[in-house]
Write a protein that binds this DNA or RNA. Structure first.
Lengths: 360, 360
DNA sequence: TATTAGCACTCGAAGAAAGAGAGTGCCAAC
DNA sequence: GTTGGCACTCTCTTTCTTCGAGTGCTAATA
């Protein structure tokens, strides 16, 4: 059954109002705010129908109406006006993004922090699982007992590790190993790094001290870490400002779940296309702990076919349109800068300024 | 005035009991638990004196007693029995430390997570401010537009950054720059990296494209980031399981403060010696938000004269002895492994096992 | 002099009762 | 189909009462 225009308007009004006030919405309030020229009695009739259709519900017989998950779903899919953020707001987001992400690393924890700040909900940033391979493998010789492993992955992230060894290592061995690893270990996944391969490399390098194993272990570690989807959560505490989490136990449960960082988001779903916003409302979530919360997820392009995701968690009574709009901009910005694996022009510029003021 | 033995015992009993139950402690309860052979009436007299001495207080006239900050202080300084953790517990901590910190990075966020898990309070790990210099500077040439900067600092941490440039760079220029940076930028602090120095390097390398600036900017960034004391907080949500934070507003305030990650701990105090445990009780804290919470801080030796700190935050009604004992072990473990900047033997071993099972 | 038993008293927590108010459902009129 | 009117329902808030743990004090005891 398709909803009449008026029902849609009323439903939208209920959602808007409820999101704003967190109080069940009465017929009178709607009659006043939503500018349809009819009385509260008419609205009451409509509301009753919306209830029986499953879009709304009543906490108790003589209370206002509250959207059901199905109601929110309808709202998100059809009713909510794609919020246009004002120019200032957009600017602000971009500015903060530049500022925040210029510092050292645009690592996912920074991204999640930013998302949380912007939306004022807890946010989480996730890496997506995908086959990662090693693109480059370098070993920097520091001294006879020390070297630095530097691995560049196919997703353009670089990892390093400082290794101390109890035994001395010849500089040439290190170089040989470096070359061997670069030829043998690039372009393959962690599963392909078999003991056999390590043994072969070891023999080829004449490595009698097992350094190869240490390095290979690092390679495996990096690869599997990169493939394990990890989530960074920040701003858990913002949950507490939501009235639905005034109950400390409830808040604690969800926050604990979030900090656990487990597989929070639909693990089976393939990541959406970059730019796409996905909304999971209440029971649509797989995790039991999220069953009465909502999640908004934006996907961005992290370059080299990998996708990143930023999600925001809140009560089902969530300001979907604003959150979606903000995440959209954030995701777009991230795609822009990560997609090509380079810092944004401004970032570079700001740094370069130091060239100028040499008289100091 | 010095407390009589019995008063001490009673005070200790009050603290212990209150820590356990979070309820004001009555005279009868003490008469039963603390095995001093006297009746509740006697205890009442003693309690009344302890109140007038300032060690205890009453929430209201006809309630049990609760320790004041001064009472806790006395407890921590003199009464609390230095808790000996059982062998199993110690083992457990060490095992978890090995497990947790073996993964890729023993970074401070992992340390703080671990501390929080162990104590079941929110924990924060801090780096201490100290003059950091660059120990090594390497540039890995990836392709004409891409290279990886690898910087090893005096505190034995290694940072890297992938740099894309819009212009092509000659491989030899990169090598020359690498050499120049290694000679010019090692052993100096970020303040010593003046525009003059950059300019000189630039000219020496014949760098007309300003790559030097980009690299120098990274150097400065890394150095100043390393010198900025940062705090990593985890387990904020554990606050919520404490009855004193059942009020969401109160919890929110403190959690917000913690997540802010600001200068949480006595900024003026010089870090204690490694192994030392410091306890700040309620109003002893400088930060307004911590005035009715307590903080336990352990200092560990992070190698190369730098100290690290792990702190735990909780209500003043905190299990000081257990927390102190656990942090102690944690700090000792960290000193052991970070002090010499190497992975613990077990960690290495476990990795090396993969050598063995090549028949798979 | 220190300890103890006894007892009246205090004060908060928990429960019960009452009142207020927002909002509904339904009916009859338009 | 819409509207005003009205009785009804149910929660929230406030007020009052009760209950009980724990105290402080006094007088008796070792």
């Amino acid at each position: 059954m398709v909803l009449s225009e008026r029902k849609k308007k009323i439903l939208a009004a209920v959602v808007d109002e409820y999101v704003r006030t967190a109080e069940p919405v009465g017929s009178k309030a709607i009659a006043q705010t939503a500018g349809l020229g009819c009385s509260s009695a008419t609205i009451r009739n409509e509301l009753a129908e919306l209830v029986s259709l499953g879009y709304l519900e009543q906490p108790h017989t003589s209370a206002g109406r509250v959207p059901t998950p199905m109601g929110y779903r309808m709202y998100v899919n059809e009713l909510m006006q794609k919020q246009k953020l004002s120019l200032e707001e957009t600017e602000d987001i971009n500015r903060r993004m530049n500022q925040k992400l210029r510092e050292l690393d645009d690592t996912i924890d920074n991204v999640s922090r930013l998302a949380s700040q912007l939306t004022d909900y807890p946010a989480l940033a996730l890496t997506t699982r995908s086959a990662v391979t090693i693109k480059r493998f370098d070993i920097i010789y520091v001294d006879a007992n020390t070297f630095i492993l530097v691995v560049m992955l196919s997703d353009n992230t670089v990892k390093n590790k400082l290794v101390h060894l109890p035994v001395s290592v010849d500089k040439r061995l290190v170089q040989r190993l470096s070359a061997l690893f670069n030829s043998g270990f690039t372009g393959i996944t962690d599963e392909q790094i078999t003991p056999l391969l390590i043994n072969a490399t070891e023999r080829a390098a004449d490595d009698t001290m097992g350094i190869t194993s240490v390095i290979a272990a690092f390679a495996i570690e990096v690869l599997s870490a990169a493939e394990t989807p990890t989530a960074f959560v920040s701003g858990e505490n913002r949950l507490l400002s939501q009235p639905e989490f005034r109950d400390p136990d409830k808040a604690h449960r969800l926050m604990g779940y979030l900090s656990g960082g487990g597989n929070l988001l639909p693990p089976d779903q393939t990541p959406a296309d970059a730019g796409e916003i996905r909304v999971l409302i209440g029971p649509e979530n797989v995790a039991e702990e999220l069953k009465d919360s909502s999640v908004v997820i934006a996907t961005y392009d992290a370059g080299d076919n990998t996708k990143g995701m930023i999600g925001v968690v809140g009560p089902t009574r969530m300001d979907y349109s604003t959150v979606a709009a903000k995440l959209s901009i954030l995701a777009a910005g991230l795609s822009r800068r990560l997609g090509r694996g380079e810092a944004p022009p401004e970032g570079l510029h700001n740094k370069l300024i130091i060239k100028g003021d040499s008289n100091e």
